[in-house]
Design a protein around this nucleic acid. Structure first.
Lengths: 104, 104
DNA sequence: TTGACATGCAACCATTAGGTTTCCTATTGT
DNA sequence: ACAATAGGAAACCTAATGGTTGCATGTCAA
């Protein structure tokens, strides 16, 4: 779980997930396309995503295909984020009492 | 948005949010209780959570009360995580949500 | 008033993270 | 066969992160 949160903490990696969401099964070079960093940097990001089980890979000849695995994200949504949605109304009423001049 | 993801990336900070979720409005010292780090470290974590708008604070005398603000988490759920829920996963999630809301 | 208590601030330290460069290996098309 | 192509590995650099210690400030209670 911690690995997933850490993997999602970086904007470049979230962008890579976005690109895979738009088109699944891309090769490393395809994923590098248009990015302002070297292929090796992208490789590292993808390794982190793979370690967090957010991306799975398949080797096809000399190419490596990357597939999005949405399950860990889904789990975070179900088991962590909704937990805080449940307490939202109560928390807001608590806050409303205390906060009048705070920006949002 | 990036700040929120980064704030959530640390297990200590998620734990602090958990503690605030369990009991809202705790002071700094209360939040430090039982944690294996100095008060100053906790202060820094809380500052990061506050910068990400996940926590709001109110000073009461010499104490500082900390309140959970679940809105940014909710936004991540709505605008980022649901995007990756598709097909069968989406259907299951929808069903689960309906079942959960039926006995509120 | 004065001492104890709750918090703030700043300097410092070690480790990690994101990135680069350079070189290496394996596969493919002609 | 062999050059081009796709990807891997390792060393290295810098900046950010998570933590500490030491001291300062403000507030409460006796």
């Amino acid at each position: 779980m911690d690995e997933v949160f850490k993997a999602l903490a970086d904007a470049s990696r979230r962008s890579l997930l976005d690109r895979l969401h738009a088109e699944n099964g891309q090769t490393l070079n395809e994923l590098c396309d248009g990015l302002a960093m070297t292929r090796q940097a992208v490789t590292k990001h993808l390794a982190i995503l793979e370690a967090a089980n957010l991306v799975s890979t398949v080797k096809r000849g000399r190419e490596k295909l990357h597939y999005l695995n949405p399950l860990p994200i889904h789990r975070i949504g179900e088991r962590w984020i909704r937990k805080f949605e449940r307490g939202k109304l109560q928390a807001l009423s608590d806050l409303k009492r205390k906060l009048e001049s705070s920006d949002e």
